[in-house]
């Protein structure tokens, strides 16, 4: 699998952008962009993704540095929890006399 921006046909590498909307919230992935280096990627992200007061902090990550799960292995990766109801708290009945549950 090749990552977009990894090949030489695209002049600038691809960066994934994460923006934190407010203090106390997490950085959330908002999209991607091209930039010649990390410093310019932060600036481009500011121009592309925070035009309407969307954020107070930006992270950029080289897209090639992200390892993804294999979309073709969806079954093996994500369908195994089906039927394993004991992993959910609601599976259990509350013992008598236990407070604050």
């Amino acid at each position: 699998m090749s990552t977009p921006g990894e090949t030489g046909t695209e002049p600038w590498p691809l960066w994934e952008v994460f923006v934190r909307a407010n203090r106390g919230l997490s950085h959330v992935h908002v999209g991607s962009l091209h930039a010649p280096d990390a410093d310019m990627a932060v600036r481009n992200a500011r121009d592309l993704y925070t035009r309407r007061n969307e954020g107070v902090s930006i992270w950029v990550v080289p897209a090639v540095a992200i390892t993804t799960s294999d979309p073709d292995a969806k079954g093996a990766f994500f369908e195994s929890p089906a039927g394993k109801n004991y992993r959910h708290a609601v599976y259990y009945t509350k013992s008598e006399g236990v407070k604050h549950l």
Binding site: W12, H34, L48
Partner: peptide, 11 residues
Amino acid sequence: PELEEDVALGN
């Protein structure tokens, strides 16, 4: 030169 710079100069 790039779409991103288009936006930067436009901004």
